[in-house]
Amino acid sequence: MVLARWWRTRIPRYRLIGAQCKSCGRAHYPPRKACPYCGSTELEQVMLPRRGILESYTVVQSIPGDTRFQAPIIVGLVRLENGVRLVAELTDVQPEELKLGLEVEATMRRIREDGDNGTIMYGLKFRPILGKS
């Protein structure tokens, strides 16, 4: 049963909060205790832009049985408007609609479920920008 592990990481996942390094100025997601670029621990949490472009993507075919009803799982490498990159699932998109440079935006979705009697992990995925797809 998954409880504290999903709970303690919920805020960045719900609100797309990253960390900005006061030393080198670079931001990253999700927030870490030390800057992955320069090692500084002088970081502040920042809201990241919710829009970006697709730098790469893949349609995952081999997925566990309990997520079969969600197939295909589509994963993207997204570069947000401020340059921060992240790996995230894409949603509300068909494989044939995918292309490099596709404009995407964050949307709240179910990410995982702890079986059918446990808790649900929510978080942001990315979809083609409304009205531009």
Binding site: T58, E89, R112, K125
Partner: peptide, 15 residues
């Protein structure tokens, strides 16, 4: 981070 999503083993390398 990345593996909260259903990335399996191949997805990041496929990208």
């Amino acid at each position: 981070s990345d593996a909260i999503y259903r990335i399996g083993h191949a997805a990041p390398l496929a990208m």
